[in-house]
């Protein structure tokens, strides 16, 4: 006993095959445990969302005259039609998800932390990190104007319909 104790203090004995296999077993068990934990955390990450169909019919294009500005409360978006075509701005504030209010001059103001956006959704003030989202618009085969609230287009993109 004493002898062993003294040797181990003086120098590290070389690893034997048994030590190696022991370490291998220990690390395999640790790896398996970590993978199991990670695997368990896969469950709460949804693969299908309750809002999976994020598309909504807004109406027939001819319903909206040039210059029309319409709000869709459920989709939280403003639909505009001008000479260049249709575009839709999401009123969900890019800061922390409140709904920005559209003021009389067409600019947006968020009630939660005072972010300000201009008519085109560009940030004018406050903490918002980026401009309001331009929502993807399309025309369905049946001729409906459809907005997909989870899809974004480059600001300035307009739909001719």
């Amino acid at each position: 006993m004493d002898n062993q104790l003294q040797t181990s203090e003086r120098f590290k004995p070389p690893k034997t095959r048994r030590d190696f296999l022991g370490l291998l077993a220990a690390w395999s068990a640790i790896a398996a445990f970590v993978m199991a934990i990670l695997g368990a955390f896969r469950l709460p990450m949804p693969s299908v969302f309750p809002e999976s169909d994020s598309r909504a019919k807004l109406g027939k294009p001819k319903q909206f005259t040039v210059g029309a500005q319409t709000y869709f409360a459920k989709q939280r978006l403003w639909l505009y039609r001008d000479e260049a075509g249709f575009h839709a701005l999401s009123s969900v504030c890019t800061h922390l998800g409140c709904i920005a209010e559209r003021l009389d001059d067409g600019q947006f103001s968020c009630p939660c932390h005072g972010s300000k956006f201009d008519e085109a959704g560009r940030v004018k003030g406050g903490p918002a990190p980026k401009g309001l989202i331009w929502v993807e618009l399309s025309v369905s085969p049946e001729g409906w104007l459809v907005a997909d609230t989870l899809k974004e287009v480059t600001p300035g993109t307009k739909l001719l319909a």
Binding site: F41, M45, P46, P50, E51, S54
Partner: peptide, 11 residues
């Protein structure tokens, strides 16, 4: 998404 299980606060 892990927190909400959705894009918005809901069920």
């Amino acid at each position: 998404e892990v927190l909400l299980g959705a894009h918005y606060v809901g069920q």
